[in-house]
Amino acid sequence: MATGGRRGAAAAPLLVAVAALLLGAAGHLYPGEVCPGMDIRNNLTRLHELENCSVIEGHLQILLMFKTRPEDFRDLSFPKLIMITDYLLLFRVYGLESLKDLFPNLTVIRGSRLFFNYALVIFEMVHLKELGLYNLMNITRGSVRIEKNNELCYLATIDWSRILDSVEDNYIVLNKDDNEECGDICPGTAKGKTNCPATVINGQFVERCWTHSHCQKVCPTICKSHGCTAEGLCCHSECLGNCSQPDDPTKCVACRNFYLDGRCVETCPPPYYHFQDWRCVNFSFCQDLHHKCKNSRRQGCHQYVIHNNKCIPECPSGYTMNSSNLLCTPCLGPCPKVCHLLEGEKTIDSVTSAQELRGCTVINGSLIINIRGGNNLAAELEANLGLIEEISGYLKIRRSYALVSLSFFRKLRLIRGETLEIGNYSFYALDNQNLRQLWDWSKHNLTITQGKLFFHYNPKLCLSEIHKMEEVSGTKGRQERNDIALKTNGDQASCENELLKFSYIRTSFDKI
């Protein structure tokens, strides 16, 4: 039985969820670079991206490699990797027998973001014989899940209580170790020597080791999670996991709180800001991140802002960003909400898709409305799209047979046209069989910064309504002859009103 693990408890099935942008060198404390989270699957090609990484700022997932063999891993080693800020997950990587050479110096898994409450997941690794993470000293947050690894031993010899604050939620089941077939031998045991430290858990006094050649490092209890030197002297209180010299914040392997210019500090002093819960960055760093993602459509890219001495992905609820200094300031009234469309555009074809934009005031991208039916549609669209004030790209209304009016965009005031449909149009209306009105132009103002209007096959939309939009939106004169079809717009509506004058002759039985 794995020490510190839980057996036999019912657990939810383990679901495996399925960018080499360097964020800056980590400095003297770390020998390499800070790398983003990685999802490495199918083959070993991307694994080489770990070569210079000291910190993975995010998670590391290595999974679904069915053609790899043990010899493929023999020359692979990433000794610079010290810390993973989120979680480490391995799933069905064939041929991998140990992690001792792959990650010989991995010391800390912070667990800032977890995989279903777990910071370390080893699942269905069919050839893994031992973990071998002999320098792993601290899992700051989260638990361990090690399950269905039929060859995995050296679990009962690990004292997880020396690595985690609590072992109650560890789930370590259905491994070879369960069948008591392992016969784990710690260093020196074969020669009758006791080389590794022994600890007591559940009444068992057991030597602690990761492999037959690597003991588990056990520091004096007084050192807590700070770690200790090879001689057993406690590291500085700002260290986490390990250090090369005692009581020196510049000799830590990793930091308990924050890293700044080669030393570990309790908090980031001005003019620095907390970033990702582990390091200090200056304003320029946060500003660069903001600008890199301002026009990016890459998933996970955030326009970072500053709030409460932190550089964070977005302002919290009730705050909006001051564009001059990136500071989050309290909103006066309802907060603006910028919604970034991942692929640059979004099609609204149902109430469900409209709900995804609920509360958005600025759309960074283009909207395509293609709704053919739905219950209580006008009210639903207004509830979900009615706060949109600005669209950076274009607005396209296409084959939306259920629409009679666009009044559900009740606050839309600006279409920038930074991206144009077919390279020309910022407003595009095609084949809307029941569209009769755009907006009530006596109450609604709309500016279209650039781009043209396109109207074709809107049989109940009168040309007068379209011409009014040209005047109000500032697009009059931009359109070419064929942009607004004269014969297919309003051709099934009563669009022309003329005053009919009647004269009559009164007659009676005795007068003409």
Rank of each mutant, 00 (worst) to 15 (best):
L29E: 09
L29H: 06
Y30I: 02
P31I: 02
P31K: 10
E33V: 06
D39S: 10
R41H: 00
N42E: 08
L44C: 05
T45C: 15
T45L: 13
R46Q: 05
E49M: 13
E49Q: 12
E49R: 15
S54V: 03
V55W: 08
E57S: 09
L63G: 08
M65Y: 14
K67P: 05
R69Q: 10
R69P: 06
P70Y: 03
E71F: 14
D72M: 11
F73V: 09
D75M: 15
L76A: 14
P79W: 06
I82S: 07
M83N: 00
D86T: 01
L89S: 02
L90Y: 01
L90W: 05
V93L: 13
Y94A: 14
E97L: 06
L99W: 01
L99I: 08
K100Y: 08
L102F: 14
L102G: 05
L102A: 04
F103T: 01
F103Y: 00
N105K: 08
I109D: 00
I109W: 00
I109V: 08
G111A: 04
G111Q: 00
S112K: 13
S112T: 05
R113T: 11
R113I: 11
F115L: 08
F115A: 13
N117D: 09
N117Q: 14
N117P: 14
Y118N: 01
A119D: 00
A119T: 09
A119C: 03
V121W: 01
V121F: 03
V121H: 10
V121N: 01
H127S: 12
K129M: 10
L136W: 00
L136K: 01
M137F: 12
I139F: 03
S143D: 14
V144T: 03
V144F: 02
E147Q: 08
K148R: 15
N150E: 10
E151L: 09
E151S: 06
L152K: 01
L152Y: 01
Y154C: 04
Y154L: 03
L155Q: 05
L155S: 05
S161K: 14
S161P: 03
R162D: 07
I163D: 00
I163A: 01
L164A: 12
D165Q: 09
D165A: 11
D165E: 15
S166M: 14
E168V: 15
D169V: 07
D169E: 10
Y171R: 00
I172S: 06
L174F: 11
N175Q: 09
N175Y: 04
K176A: 05
K176R: 04
E180V: 09
C182K: 05
P187G: 12
T189A: 08
T189G: 14
T189S: 07
G192K: 15
G192S: 14
T194V: 03
C196F: 15
P197W: 10
A198S: 10
T199W: 09
T199P: 09
T199K: 09
V200R: 10
I201T: 06
Q204C: 11
F205L: 11
V206H: 15
E207A: 08
S213C: 11
H214L: 06
Q216P: 02
V218Y: 06
V218M: 07
V218K: 14
I222P: 13
C223Y: 02
G227V: 06
C228T: 01
C228W: 01
C228M: 02
A230W: 13
G232S: 08
C234R: 01
C234K: 02
H236Q: 04
E238N: 15
C239Q: 01
L240M: 03
S244T: 03
P246A: 02
D248V: 06
P249V: 03
K251M: 15
C255R: 00
C255M: 01
N257G: 05
L260C: 01
P269E: 06
P270R: 08
P270F: 10
P271D: 01
Y273G: 04
H274A: 15
F275C: 03
Q276T: 13
W278K: 00
W278M: 03
R279P: 00
C280L: 01
S284T: 05
S284A: 06
F285G: 03
F285C: 03
F285E: 02
H290P: 10
S296K: 12
Q299I: 14
G300K: 14
H302L: 03
H302S: 11
Q303V: 10
Y304L: 07
N308C: 04
N309A: 10
P313W: 15
P313S: 08
E314M: 05
G318H: 09
M321L: 14
N322G: 05
N325G: 15
L326F: 06
L327T: 03
C331K: 07
L332Y: 02
G333I: 05
P334L: 10
P334F: 04
P334N: 08
P336Q: 02
